[in-house]
Simulated scan of single mutants.
Amino acid sequence: MSTRKATGQEAEAVAARYLQRRGIRICDRNVFSRGGEIDLVGMDGDTVVFFEVRYRGHGSLAGAAESVSYRKQQRVLRAASYYLHRHGLWNAPARVDVVAVAPGGLRRYKIQWIKNAIQSSA
């Protein structure tokens, strides 16, 4: 396994543990569709939440949260729409959050959870 893939999987595992400690029930991981990939899918009460997990190490020019490009946002929105359709959840409240993971100082990781970070223009 490449180190980049392993780093990504570790960041997703860190994010999942962080979210679970804050009351999110993780339902799916690494969901692939024609539209794109969703890193984590969870439930926050009755809201379906799609999580884009981003990791940036020391020396990165852009922070993890800032690294979500417009094109990536569109792919996540397409994949989320497909997921809702496929699971018959069109009437369920849903949102897309970003979880930014970076190396920490006192703790091993610094985590930033941005709720409703990606919104559909429609």
Rank of each mutant, 00 (worst) to 15 (best):
F32Y: 13
I26G: 01
Y82W: 08
R22H: 15
V49C: 14
P93Q: 08
Q20V: 00
I26D: 02
C27R: 13
G36Q: 10
R29E: 13
R22T: 00
G59N: 08
G63R: 15
V14K: 05
H58K: 08
R17T: 12
A16N: 09
Q74M: 14
V53H: 07
V48Q: 07
Q73N: 09
K5L: 13
Y109Q: 04
Y83L: 09
D28C: 05
G59Q: 04
G57Y: 03
V49N: 03
D28N: 09
V68G: 10
S33Y: 03
Q20F: 00
I26Y: 09
D97P: 00
L19D: 01
R108D: 13
W113F: 14
G23F: 13
Q20H: 04
A64M: 15
H58Q: 06
S81C: 12
N30I: 02
R95A: 15
K72H: 10
Y109L: 10
R17F: 03
A62T: 13
V96T: 12
A65C: 07
A11Y: 05
L61D: 05
L84D: 02
V98S: 03
F51H: 08
R107C: 07
R95K: 06
V68K: 11
V41P: 08
E52F: 11
E66N: 11
R25Y: 01
L19V: 06
A100T: 03
A62N: 12
L77G: 13
Q9G: 07
